[in-house]
Computed example of a mutant assay.
Amino acid sequence: MTRVEALEHCRKMAMHMRKNALKMALAAGNNGSHLGGGLSIIEIMATLYGHVMNYNKNNYKSRKRDRFILSKGHSTLGYYTALEAAGIISEEQLFTFEQNGGYLPGQPSMNYDMGIEYSSGSLGLGLSYGIGLAIASRMSDCPYNVYVLLGDGECNEGSVWEAAMFAAHNKVSNLTAIIDANSLQSDGPTSDVLGIDLEQVWRGFGWDVRMVEDGHNIKELIETFEAPGIKNKPRVIIARTVKGKGVSFMENNNEWHHNRLTQLQYDEALSEISIKEVHLSDN
């Protein structure tokens, strides 16, 4: 796949995922869903599952597959839709989201048959697990890469920094952490709750730090993921994103951290996305 083909594939994948995320949220009804953070990671997930990772419907149980860990477990709408778009789970399975007896709860539960590598929900733990997987690759002489997605609010957790120190000390260079830096968390703006300079802090902990100024720009994401890393260093990609991206009344609106989507709101949101899809096709 050429770079141009990869870009087009990931863009179409992201559009498909965003529409499915809204449909899942609507079907969840009074259970509600974490739409804001789910929508902010869509392009990151489309880039990973559509192009970057050695992971597809033919190898997702192979020992040499790349591993993805969703540490910010409440962003499952962006995760499950990527698994469906990549052909790992079916559309029927996707729409069991938050249904009684369904396959997909509101926070991921480890299920290798469905491509889910890690049970998350409690924040701050996914990076440690990802480091363990990355070291296991090295010790078993079975090469693969590990990608861990965290939230900027999640980086308030002290366990994140213990893991960061350990990874740098042990030169875990087959590990990439991605920070969904959407500037909001459940209690409000991240800068107000516990503001830190993520770029400087990660660099101070000994990581290879890469910035993506627009975490919804797939071209910029692909270029950053494919750029050569620094030898013997774990890498972190800090992607500046918009919570609720793609739906005007959700963007940067923390009411959509977790909320119920009504039919009227769904229709309005889908109309916006459909207009953007037509514009994308014209270009």
Rank of each mutant, 00 (worst) to 15 (best):
V209I: 08
A239R: 02
E43G: 08
A269T: 03
F97H: 05
K19P: 01
L123W: 11
I222Q: 13
S40C: 15
E255P: 01
L26V: 00
L94E: 02
T47V: 07
V236N: 02
D66G: 01
N30H: 10
N182G: 11
G195R: 10
Y55L: 15
A46C: 10
L184S: 04
Q99L: 05
V236R: 00
V52E: 02
P189K: 08
G37V: 10
D152G: 07
E92M: 01
S271V: 01
T81N: 01
H279D: 07
G229C: 11
D282Y: 04
P105G: 02
M250S: 02
Y266D: 00
I88W: 12
T241D: 04
D192P: 02
D113P: 00
G132P: 14
Y60G: 10
M24R: 03
I135H: 09
S183Q: 15
M17H: 06
I238Q: 10
N145I: 01
P105F: 04
R3P: 02
N283Q: 13
E220A: 15
G229I: 10
A164D: 09
Y49M: 06
V193I: 15
V242R: 07
E255N: 13
V146T: 15
E154S: 12
P105T: 05
I69E: 05
S120W: 09
D187H: 12
D267Q: 12
E92D: 14
G38S: 03
A21Y: 05
F166L: 12
V146A: 08
N283V: 12
I178R: 00
G78V: 09
N170W: 15
R67N: 11
H257C: 06
R210W: 14
E162D: 14
R65F: 01
N31S: 11
S173N: 13
A163L: 10
M250R: 04
Y49E: 07
C142K: 14
K12Q: 13
A167H: 13
F68G: 05
A6E: 14
A28M: 01
H258D: 01
G215Y: 11
N283A: 08
K64D: 02
K19T: 06
W202M: 12
H169A: 14
C142Q: 14
Y103F: 14
Y266W: 04
M1K: 12
S137H: 11
G29C: 02
L35R: 04
N20V: 04
G73Y: 07
R63N: 09
